[in-house]
Structures are given as C-alpha cells and as structure tokens.
Design a binder for these strands. Structure first.
Lengths: 307, 307
DNA sequence: AACAGCGTTGCGTTGAATGCAACCCCAAAA
DNA sequence: TTTTGGGGTTGCATTCAACGCAACGCTGTT
C-alpha cells in the first residue's frame, strides 16, 4: 500500500462534470485495434478462410475506418498489402478503399515509396473538433515545460465515454518511457487520470460505473469499492492522484485536474513513468509538478478550481 | 496594377520543394463541399428522384465522408435530418452511418440536444498526422502574436496537391474578416500564398501547372505567364507576396514562406484581409509583419532560408 | 389529446463491395 | 538483355449489405 503520501498542495473539491463527455470501456495497454491481429500470420486467404472472426460481417465503413487506424505515428507510411495483411482484408478491397480516401484527400501517397500516408484532408475533417479543444493548445507549452522539468512524459487526458483519453502528449527524453498514442484510452479505476475524473463524479455514479465493469477495479467488492471512494477523496485533498504500479507492475503515474470557468473538470494532466525510475519521494515531487502544470492550464483557460 | 511596392526585407531565394506535398485543383471561394448543394431544397426524395447528380453513384464511403464533412466549426452540432437534407441522403442512411461512426467514437451525441458532434476518436485518427505537423504547433503562438499585432486574421498554409491549404488559423478581432475553415484549399495563381509556394518551384513546372489549369490564372497567355513568373521573382526579392484584390475584388492577402533546415519550403504564413481596410501602405506593413512571423517560425523549426 | 418533427428499425430490392485471378509495373536478379 | 518476384490495380461474377421506404416510438408543442 502506498497510500500514506504526504498531503501537500491544497487539493481540489468535487465539481460537477463537464458537458461533452460521455461513455465506453476498454483495457489499458497500447490498446490493439479492436479488429485484427496486429501483424503475425499473413492470413492465407484461401477458399477455406471465408474471413475468420475479424473482418467478418464488418461493413465497408468499419473496414475503411480500420484502414485509417492502421496508420500510426511510428509507421506513417504503409503499403496496400501491408495494411490488408494487418486488418485481414483482401488486397483489392484495401486498394479500393484507399483509392476513395485518396480522392477525398484523406490519404495521399508518398511519391517515391509509392506507399500511403494520411492526407491533410484529415486535418480538415478533424478541424471543427480541434477548434473546440482549446485545452490542447493551451496545454501544449505547459506540458512541454513540465516534461522539460521532470524529464518524464506528460499528457493531457480528457474524460470521454467513461474512459480517460489522451489528446496531447509530450515524450520523455529518456530512452525508457511510457508513450501512448494520441487517442489511447484507459478505463482502469487505478489509473491515476481515471481517478482524477472519477473524483469529480458523485459517489453513486462511481459505484455504478465500477459495478457495471465499465471501469475495472481488480478484486472488486463492496469493501474495495468504499476504500476506493475514500482514496478518491484523499486524492482531491492532496491535489493529485497517483498510481504506484497498481495497474501494471512496471508503471506509475500521477495526475491532476484541469477546470474550466465553472469549476467543471475538463481535462487532467498525467505524468506516466516507468516504475524503476520513481521512488515514493520522487512520486510526490512529480505529483506536485503535475498539479502545478494543471493549475497553470486551468488559469490560462480562464478556469478556476471548484468551491 | 499594384506591382510597384517597395522592396524591403531581404527576400528569400528559390528553394527546392519539400517532400510530402503533391497535387489537385479547385475554385477559391469558401469552397462548398464537392457533393451536394449546401442546403436549399430539402430534396423531396420521391420515386422520381433516383438521386440527382449528387449522391448518385456515391459509395458508402463517400457518403460517410460527406457526413463527417458536414460538421463545421460554426455548426458543430447537427441532427440526422439536418445532415441528410444537406448532403442529399436518406435519413435512415445517415442514421446508420452515424451509428457506425458513433460506435467507433468518430462522432458522439450531445446528451441533451441529442444531436451529433464529432467525437474524440477523430483525434486519434488524425493523430499520426498531427504529430507530423510540427509546424502547426510551432506556428500557433507566432500566429497569435501576429494577429494581435495586425488585428487581422493570420493563417498557416501548406502546399498539398498543387493547392495551398490552411492548417492553422487565428481569427481577426475585427467584425468583418476573412475566415476560411481549416482545410480550405486555394489554387488561384494570384492568391498570395499560392504565389509563395510557386515561387519555390522551378519556372518550367510553374508553366506546366498554369497551362494545365491546375492552377488558375485569369487571362492566361504566354505573355501573362512570363509576367507572372517575373512577379514571383519579385516576391522572392521582396520577402513576401501579395494579392491586392486580384482574386476577389473585396479581398487582399500577403504571404511569406517558412523553411525547414534544408531550406525547403514547408509552409507559408498568410494574412488575408478585407480590401477596404487595407491601403497599399498598410499592405506593405502587413507584408513585413507576415515575413517577420514566417521567419520566426522558420527559426523555431530549426530551419533556414535557402542559399 | 392530437399533432408535428425527429430518429430508429424491419423489410424487400438492387446495387455495390468483395474475393478472385489476371494483369501491369517496377525493380532486382540472372 | 531477359527473367522473376512482389506489390498494386482492374474486370468480372457472386452475394451480401446498403439503400429507400414506411411504420413506429419518442418528445415536446399547440
């Protein structure tokens, strides 16, 4: 148990939740695409492989989205066959989907390698959304400074679909680091950013979420539930929440809330880090740095802590 | 003719073009969606309306993309019927498309209004792309300062598909202002940002582009073409290009290039403004401010002017 | 209470997405 | 030079799923 951390900072109090923030669920890890084995098995699509589970019954749209999702920051350039193999679709299908996307500027092809990449049309699509996410841009320089200061990765998370989702991230300068892609989602109760968001919900709703399994808490029973609620309160008082290797033996995390002008929580600042690099003391200092950054963002957003 | 503007600043010289930058075409105005009349005519889809031109032959994918495109920064919340009316599809079709998107987090629904908005899944999709567009984030504070200083809208444009496309924009504080949505594309030769990009191409390629009509120049003939090429050179010397009501009687614009470390052009800073607010003198000062901002961004990108 | 507008759902038809295989193209190997 | 191979595209027939329709459920209004 790592509960006994010093309560410094002055915490935040239970606010009501913000507007456009809704519900879902999922595991935590790099989060593989819902469909298709990451790569392995080139999928020998012969007569007896009508479509194994994966792409089966998937509508064009779902397939198309899967195609778009196969582009990542690490591998921005992909070939038709490559994509087809990964998501378990036929070459020709993928080729046609890509052709449509290309014509709509959602993908473009690298002139030399002849492979595909996401096109700038995506920006246009996501534009209206990006415009709304004022927090992102405000947060960016603050996160940068935070990562500079702590040396660790920092991220801006929002609560969406009962999951904590990453909308901005600055990579740690260290070799070993926690790095989740933009859009990664987390729903473990013990994840520090999830704690921050749940602390802003009222207790009954938290109970319901945990009981329903939307938010996962290992060894869930009534006792554990109440202990968890207590822990949330402590986090509020402390000003930041932590996860000391509780979701994964190798990871720790601290998180702190960002509020809007109404005192509603709109985001949280998260610092994930490899456990070996963080002792309980350094965890506390990370927590304070995190809280500090979150406050800065809150201020720049014209927000204020609740109460 | 507004050619005789003073040549101050020290200009930039002809660089080679940057990597992922390709080709297309289109008109200039707010650029209505390729498909479907903006709104008018609710489309009385009766038996004798098989599908008039618009959605005709449109694949599911194209329809789906059209649905996503109907969300704008001005109208982020849309209902099924509303969307269906605009893009000329059946309610049920749109409803089903949205259902799929919702399940993939690409749209979500506003709890109270029950209407749809873009979902954060879009961020995840566009993420790999956003990560690449380092220029955007670097440019943001600079643009903000630029708009602050000039009072006008400022934008970051990139060259994509033989069109100049907006990837970042700060709105003017004035009531009357030029405002194009993120992702808006321009292909008129006289548009100032287009001039900046073309000035970075070699003359032969520019000739080809103009002759092919990919880039539009009113009254195009050999003479006009050579005059245009000369104008590009002047822009380079001056350090910024301008468009003094030449694409539209009510608009003016100035633009200046942003370079990467190799001296390749990667973007341009554009200040569009209503003509009535800008004299030739103020145009020059806008141009200088623009150039200044572009240089700042270049520097922060670790870039340098060519030569 | 009746109405009107909106979103969803079942159903039958038909059109379009799929898988396949042949083909094209480029590049590396022979 | 020819040959071979991998990757991408295209024509075709099949079949499945997307479409339009209309009926329904819901909510808020007159």
């Amino acid at each position: 148990m790592t509960h006994m951390l010093i309560a410094l900072g002055q915490g935040w109090a239970c606010p009501n939740k913000k507007s456009h923030i809704v519900t879902i669920m999922t595991p935590a890890e790099p989060r593989a695409e819902p469909r298709a084995e990451p790569r392995a098995e080139p999928r020998v699509i012969t007569s007896d492989t009508p479509a194994n589970g994966d792409s089966k019954g998937a509508s064009v749209l779902e397939n198309a989205i899967a195609v778009l999702r196969s582009f990542t920051a690490e591998e921005p350039l992909l070939g038709v066959t490559e994509i087809a193999g990964r998501i378990g679709l036929h070459k020709s299908t993928v080729s046609r989907i890509l052709a449509t996307f290309e014509q709509e500027h959602l993908v473009e092809r690298d002139p030399e390698s002849r492979r595909f990449r996401l096109g700038l049309g995506m920006i246009a699509l996501a534009g209206p959304l990006l415009a709304e996410l004022e927090e992102r841009r405000v947060a960016y320089p603050v996160l940068r400074e935070l990562s500079e200061r702590t040396g660790e990765t920092s991220a801006l998370m929002v609560w969406n679909g009962n999951e904590s989702m990453c909308v901005e991230q600055i990579a740690s300068r260290h070799q070993v680091k926690h790095l989740a892609p933009l859009g990664a989602r987390y729903n473990e109760a013990l994840s520090s950013s999830v704690q921050v968001f749940l602390a802003a919900e009222d207790a009954d709703r938290v109970r319901k979420l945990l009981r329903s399994g939307s938010i996962t808490l290992p060894g869930l029973d009534e006792e554990a539930l109440e202990a968890y609620l207590l822990r949330l309160q402590e986090s509020v008082k402390r000003g930041w929440a932590f996860n000391f290797g509780e979701t994964s033996i190798e990871e720790v995390g601290v998180a702190s809330p960002v509020f809007d002008h109404r005192g509603d929580i709109v985001a949280s600042v998260l610092i994930p880090a490899p456990k070996f690099r963080v002792s309980q003391d350094t965890l506390a200092s990370l927590g304070e740095a995190c809280q500090d950054a979150a406050r800065k963002i809150t201020t720049r957003l014209g927000g204020r802590a609740p109460h």
